[in-house]
Simulated assay, not measured.
Amino acid sequence: MDYRFSAGEVPLLVSMPHVGTDIPDDIAATLAPCGRLLADTDWHLEQLYGFLGEMGASTLAARWSRYVIDLNRPPENTNLYPGQDTTGLCPVDTFGREPLYLEGRAPDQAEVQRRLALYWQPYHDCLRAELDRLLARHGRVVLWEAHSIASVVPRFFEGKLPDLNFGTANGASCDPALTERVTEAARADGRFTVAVNGRFKGGHITRHYGRPGPGVHAVQLEMCQSTYMDEMAPFGYRPDLAEQVQPVLRTMLQAAIDWARA
């Protein structure tokens, strides 16, 4: 299976497109050593969000690494942040600008199309089907895009990121009332810094599937990995940190469910 999926009963689907760590053997053979480190993975999010089953939420998590293909990029590979540096549909370098592929082994257009069909499309087919199911059942559904990133990545932003970075495509992907509910819950705790539509405004999934008119409201949360794990290899999970941010996550997601049901 190309993803891990669990169907829930409440009007919430949590998507984790960058948690995958598997790389097919034929692609792994073309990677430079840095590619096998998988440094740019959204590490441990399934563990961090491990309470979702108790809440009755649907979950969808990637199997394949973003180095195989980035599930949160548009299939035509347009830049989501015009004028700013970003990685593409099939990345050729790491966030630290290290070449991902051995010399002459980077994917050509035919290979990109092959990966789109084999690895990108199944995730999106499942995502669309589950949104449609939940929408038919509830009339309104929240799509929560769960992401994480190192708190300092000079390639993409200056200094240290806020702890919790919400993206709603500058308000286009969800009702403003939903944004207010979840960010109020984030700020109420007082221990974590918050940004809304700052450096991260939501990727392809947030922008493409977030359609407030028909009833699909999408929110991306890009968390600093420093809130729950070690940011250096071997990228260990830190229960002592995670137990501080998990209640905030749970409160935000419950607020999203309650809003969708209202």
Rank of each mutant, 00 (worst) to 15 (best):
R155M: 09
L52N: 09
R133G: 00
V141C: 09
V141T: 11
A185Y: 00
Q109N: 12
R36Q: 14
L221D: 00
V248S: 01
A195L: 11
A62H: 08
A61Q: 10
L134Q: 10
L48D: 02
D240N: 03
V142Y: 10
N197Y: 02
R191K: 08
E180V: 02
V92D: 07
V194Q: 03
D93Q: 15
D25H: 14
D2C: 07
E46L: 01
A146Y: 02
E76M: 11
R105V: 00
N72L: 08
D70M: 03
A172G: 01
V248G: 00
T227N: 00
Y123F: 15
F157W: 14
Q84D: 11
E231L: 02
F200E: 06
L127F: 11
P91M: 06
W64D: 15
V68K: 10
C126I: 12
T227M: 05
H204Q: 13
D258C: 03
T251C: 13
T251A: 15
G159Y: 06
V196Q: 07
D163Q: 02
A255M: 08
Q109W: 04
M16C: 06
A195Y: 10
V19Q: 06
R105A: 10
L37S: 10
P239S: 11
A146D: 07
Q113F: 14
H124Q: 04
T86M: 14
L52V: 03
G213S: 12
G104L: 03
Y119H: 13
W120N: 03
S6N: 12
Q244G: 02
V245I: 14
V141R: 07
D85T: 13
P17A: 05
T78A: 15
M232F: 05
A256M: 01
P247G: 09
D85A: 13
V112C: 09
G50E: 02
D22P: 05
Q246W: 01
R114N: 05
L253R: 00
T86R: 14
L38N: 13
V152S: 08
A150Y: 00
V10K: 02
N77E: 13
G203P: 07
L127P: 10
K160S: 12
D175P: 15
D258P: 01
L38M: 09
V14M: 06
L135D: 10
T251D: 15
D93H: 15
G171C: 07
F192Y: 14
D2K: 13
T168M: 04
D175L: 10
